[in-house]
Amino acid sequence: MENIGLENIALFSGLILSLVGLWGLLTQKNIIKMIVGFALLDTGIHLIMIAVGYVKNSTAPIIGEGVTKANAADVIADPIPQALVLTAIVIGLGITALMLAYAVKMHQKKKSLDINHYKDLKW
């Protein structure tokens, strides 16, 4: 562990974030807290994907200062995971909004956000 790069830091914080998120998802009883856990899991996975797409000593995949058309393939990071994460962030946002809307509706129905009060799908 002599040379810890930015990608290792991003990778480990992504792993910790997603574990914390999964823990929240599994243990919390309050629906809002479960949604927060889901958002953390989501963010952690995004960080992992970005870290995996990093290429050693590379820069952002934008042609400008230091990156020309000729040397672009040698100096940039992989643009595909970044494009995928861009997609995933937006989808995650949509899902979070949807879950919050369900939570609002559930609270209107039973005046409770405790998951133990909802047994409709329990087996």
């Binding site: 790069g5 990608e7 870290a51 995996v52 990093y54 290429v55 050693k56 995949p61 934008i62 042609i63 400008g64 058309k69 672009a72 393939a73 040698d74 940039i76 992989d78 643009p79 595909i80």
Partner: peptide, 25 residues
């Protein structure tokens, strides 16, 4: 982390500026 881009990304990086014309790959 990898030392160089994988073939798909390399193709995008080499052909992208000419084919698409966007500075942001």
């Amino acid at each position: 982390s990898a030392d160089k881009l994988n073939p798909v990304a390399e193709r995008y990086a080499k052909q992208g500026p000419d084919e698409v014309g966007a500075a942001n790959l």
